[in-house]
Amino acid sequence: MPEVIYNLFVYTDGKIVTDLGFVQYNIVEDGSDEKKIEFLRARALLDHGGAYKAKVVSPEINLESYYSKHRLGTALAMFEEFFQLVNAPPDPLFAMTVVENGEVKISYSYTGSTLDLSDKTAGFVDYLVHYTSENRIDFGQMFEDDYFKAIKLLFNNGFLVSSAKLLMVFVDTVAFVEFGDEQGSFVKWLDAYTSLSSIDLEASELWEFRNGVLHMSNLHSRRVLSGKVQRLVPCVNLGATLFDKVRNEKQFDLLSLIEIIVTGVGKWVETYNVDSLKLEKFVERYDTVISDARKAYRPVAI
């Protein structure tokens, strides 16, 4: 009985996926899966022009999102309607190839396992490989390595300003990963996942602290200078937040803030256990993030 195998195509203009296509073959000869994949990849150069195609209308899939699907092994789901149309078996043998502006990208063929986009020559560790076991990402250890080791190292050695700066960068990062490049995402993430009220802080106040300390290494954002928002002053071993009405400032305990944000991260990570589609967007955005922990198969020239 012949086996049906599939050449799948993802057509893109370099920014978004515009069309999906497929060609099917009835293979009579016995042979290894590897040889069948080699056949499909060789045929891709000819097949892409005459493939059965359908436009991608909604939801829009950008190219970065497509590659995150690859990395998580979920890209095949895009072709589910095609497979239903031809009564394909549950686990079809296929090669999936990108066609960008008419040019076949054989180097980005995909055959079923997750696509390894780690580029050791570029000096980056693939965090999905390093931090994934039993099909789960160890977010806690990843964020510990990428951010909190440095935050705690700075804090424990008395570099409080630098520790606070890196903490603000971390919130910027997780807010971007959650909401994208959206105005107000810093405050939105803090309001959604942390309980700043337990130390008498507001997310809007922390945003102004972030603006001053990151941009100018001071405590004076424009809104603070105008008196619209209280100035925040990081301290240690403070206990409760202290208010100074004369200076219109709050002194807060930096360690308590770090602990609150860590707890918020745990709450945030739990959302990935109940919404698997969020993971694709996480990978798409976190792929753009660099860190000390993930730089390094070769020295960085300075």
Rank of each mutant, 00 (worst) to 15 (best):
E3W: 02
I5S: 02
N7Y: 06
F9G: 09
G14F: 00
K15C: 08
K15G: 11
T18D: 01
L20F: 11
G21L: 14
F22E: 01
F22N: 01
Y25F: 02
D30F: 01
G31D: 04
G31S: 04
S32L: 05
S32D: 08
K36E: 05
E38S: 05
L40W: 10
A42C: 07
R43C: 03
L46D: 09
D47W: 02
K53W: 08
V57H: 00
V57D: 00
E60C: 02
E60D: 05
N62F: 05
N62A: 07
Y66N: 02
Y67F: 15
Y67W: 10
H70T: 06
L72M: 14
M78Q: 10
E80V: 06
Q84P: 06
P90N: 03
P92D: 04
T97P: 07
V98C: 06
V98F: 05
V98M: 11
V99F: 10
N101A: 02
K105F: 05
Y108E: 11
S109R: 08
Y110P: 09
D116T: 05
D116S: 12
F124A: 15
D138A: 12
G140Q: 13
Q141I: 14
E144I: 11
E144S: 13
D146Q: 03
Y147K: 08
F148L: 00
K149R: 11
K149Q: 09
K152F: 14
K152Q: 13
S162V: 09
S162A: 15
S163E: 13
A164S: 12
K165Y: 01
L166D: 06
L166N: 09
V171I: 01
D172I: 00
D172K: 00
T173K: 00
E178N: 09
E182A: 12
E182G: 08
S185L: 08
F186K: 03
V187K: 13
W189S: 00
W189H: 00
S198W: 01
I199P: 14
L201E: 06
S204F: 10
L206S: 02
E208N: 03
F209E: 00
M216F: 14
S217E: 15
L219T: 10
S221A: 01
V224F: 03
L225V: 10
V229N: 02
V236M: 10
V236H: 08
F243G: 08
F243T: 15
K250F: 10
F252A: 04
V262W: 02
T263S: 14
V265Q: 05
E270M: 12
T271H: 08
Y272D: 08
Y272M: 10
Y272F: 15
D275M: 07
L279V: 12
L279K: 13
E280M: 11
R285K: 04
T288A: 04
V289T: 03
A293M: 03
A293L: 03
A293G: 08
Y297I: 07
R298G: 12
P299W: 04
